[in-house]
């Protein structure tokens, strides 16, 4: 029953994603930007290597803009339109509602990422790539997208304004990028103790994403992303409970 409820909500959300022209605009922008960063900024051909390093390295930045845009309306719209009252008067738990909505948005994001498959065909046609890092890279993208989406889901539950939700999730995601980003940690080196820099860096999506996209599946990285997702969704439940009381 619980799984059916989650599946029914996921299916409704997925259908509404695919019925909305904005979703297709999202996919087109995502594909164009990923192509632009890979070939123009990442110098895919200039590297002369048959891997997807130039492609995956931009995902934390690309998702920083696109994932909050995708998820900002998850709860904000429900609150603005009043449908949250309808949803929570149905015989289902808050956990089922949150999971259903999150899985739908995540599923749509995974679908958009999978549409980049021509880049894999290109690299396979041009050379003889190692498929391990490519598969790990995609898995890392899914987890990274899930973490960003969890955060956006949480910020969306904070407010009924999509714009406010977008801005807050941008700030949080940007913080998670910067706390382990080279130039940022270099700034801290001169005055902060090493353990503080290490602790800050361990919270960063960058360091965890880098090891996955290199083809190293470390349980710590998976636990990190899953923890962000679980923590965000748990906070979402608390925020929704607070909204209803």
């Amino acid at each position: 029953m619980a799984f059916l409820n989650i599946w029914n909500i996921t299916r409704r959300e997925l259908v509404s994603y695919f019925n909305s022209p904005v979703s297709y605009v999202f996919i087109v922008i995502f594909l164009l930007l990923s192509g632009f960063f890979t070939f123009m900024v990442g110098d895919f051909f200039g590297r002369g290597e048959s891997d997807l390093y130039a492609f995956f390295q931009w995902f934390p930045w690309l998702f920083l803009v696109l994932v909050p845009a995708l998820g900002m309306n998850i709860w904000a719209d429900e609150k603005r339109m009043g449908t949250i009252e309808l949803l929570f008067s149905l015989p289902l738990t808050t956990f089922q509602c949150i999971s259903g909505k999150f899985l739908a948005a995540w599923g749509f994001l995974i679908f958009a990422v999978l549409l980049t498959f021509p880049i894999v065909i290109t690299v396979a046609w041009l050379g003889d790539p190692d498929y391990g890092p490519i598969i790990c890279g995609y898995a890392g993208c899914f987890l990274l997208g899930g973490a960003y989406l969890g955060i956006t889901c949480m910020t969306s539950a904070m407010t009924s304004s999509q714009v406010v939700s977008f801005i807050i999730s941008e700030v949080i995601c940007l913080f998670l990028i910067f706390c382990g980003w080279g130039p940022f940690t270099d700034m801290l080196v001169n005055w902060a103790p090493a353990w503080l820099i290490d602790t800050a860096a361990s919270f960063s999506v960058m360091s965890h994403f880098t090891s996955i996209r290199r083809g190293v599946i470390d349980s710590r990285d998976i636990i990190y992303y899953c923890s962000i997702i679980v923590f965000s969704l748990f906070t979402t439940a608390m925020l929704l409970k607070n909204h209803r009381s």
Partner: peptide, 18 residues
């Protein structure tokens, strides 16, 4: 308890894209 109730909220909120 909720499965026994039918509820029409104020202003009849609906998923407008369906």
């Amino acid at each position: 308890a909720k499965s026994r109730i039918g509820y029409l909220p104020e202003n009849a909120p609906l998923y407008s894209n369906m």
